[in-house]
Design a protein around this nucleic acid. Structure first.
Lengths: 220, 220
DNA sequence: AAGTGGTCTAGACCACCTT
DNA sequence: AGGTGGTCTAGACCACTTA
């Protein structure tokens, strides 16, 4: 037996590093990703870089034109608005379905996460709050037993998430989030499919309007 | 100047041919796609094949495991049901939005397509009918001004469409389609967002149930 | 016409499975 | 240990742009 220490493939490692560099802003939206430069930066040959870029195109982070090369996907207001509408449609469907499978103990877990979220907000631990927010929705989404749908909304979300954490949340928005989550928990407890869907739709719509407003005000 | 006759890239051509071979059943769901064999079949070297497979993975036609190679995505009942639920969620959102932009003359075009569809069905031209059906929904989807959402539903649909055209439609199903489309046109004319959404939801749900039922009865 | 940079090839390399 | 088949490299090739 022979311990290699690292048995990921090169393209997977490169893909993960490029993704990280995009999401942390090393490569900003719209920036060209020149293969030769990436060869230098990551110390591998062209082909693994190209394959990584192909995969990142599949994830929606990169756009790739034949004979023209790769660039970090640009985010304009239309794109963001459209993706939020997709998220709204899918999450509304997922929360409906989740009620079918949601157990009492899962609802308790959601309540616990929501309590922790509110505590994190009180003590101004924003990155912890962000993480708990994601976890809250993730539990609902996973419980709907539709991994394909979850993959679709996770897919094109990395860039928008990184944008959102750059612009932050207003106090007003945090209060809305808390109120919405409490209503969603209530709807789940009552097994009220219609109410859960209505609140989720409103929740995503508010998130969209808030982000777009903050982008407009903070970039001019 | 030099006329090359064909200036697509090799990987794009290979990708299109593999896609076609998958959708026409040359490579059935679950079948392994061995790079060396594809090299023979298409007469190019390994790397363009690999890039084509990466892209097809992005389209959902192929699944790709590191160090394990590629295979045609398997279609089980869960996957199909889940993808129909995604389609239902997104098309319902799109038909709502489309009402905002839909002009009288576009509604006339829809009515014309629907008339042609019914004539095609009468005269048993099923492939023409299939095409008109796609065109009907495509017009509504495009009119919603959300190309990202349209791309998502088109994306993972190739395999399911090829399956559907293999199993065909029942007479009962064709009558349902006609009735649903007429109701959708009526809802658009009246600018009735709620009715359009309800009928579209029912329409996709029926399509899902019909396909799954036919798969069950015809494969045992 | 030269430069830039994306794309393709041949073959070597190496992980995993079977014996 | 040997075979199968996925992965990586170096360099050649070629499309497109700028002058």
């Amino acid at each position: 037996m022979h311990f290699t220490g690292m048995n990921d493939t090169t393209y997977a490692r490169v893909r993960d590093r490029i993704r990280e560099d995009i999401l942390t802003g090393v490569f900003a939206p719209g920036v060209r990703l020149v293969v030769a430069e990436l060869v230098q930066r990551y110390g591998v040959s062209q082909m693994p870089i190209r394959e990584a870029l192909q995969q990142l195109q599949g994830e929606g982070l990169v756009s790739l034109l034949p004979q023209k090369g790769a660039s970090v996907r640009k985010l304009d207001e239309h794109f963001i608005s459209n993706m939020y509408d997709v998220r709204m449609a899918i999450e509304t469907m997922l929360v409906r379905r989740s009620i079918e499978y949601m157990t009492e103990s899962q609802i308790c877990v959601l309540e616990q996460i929501q309590n922790d979220y509110e505590i994190a907000v009180e003590s101004d631990k924003m990155s912890e709050a962000l993480h708990l927010n994601e976890k809250f929705h993730s539990i609902i989404n996973v419980t709907a037993h539709n991994p394909e749908a979850v993959k679709i909304i996770d897919q094109h979300w990395g860039l928008i998430d990184s944008l959102r954490s750059k612009f932050g949340f207003s106090n007003k928005r945090v209060k809305e989030i808390i109120s919405d989550h409490r209503q969603i928990i209530e709807a789940l407890k009552q097994r009220d499919v219609q109410l859960a869907a209505t609140v989720t739709e409103k929740h995503v719509k508010e998130a969209k309007d808030d982000l777009i407003l903050r982008m407009r005000t903070l970039t001019e």
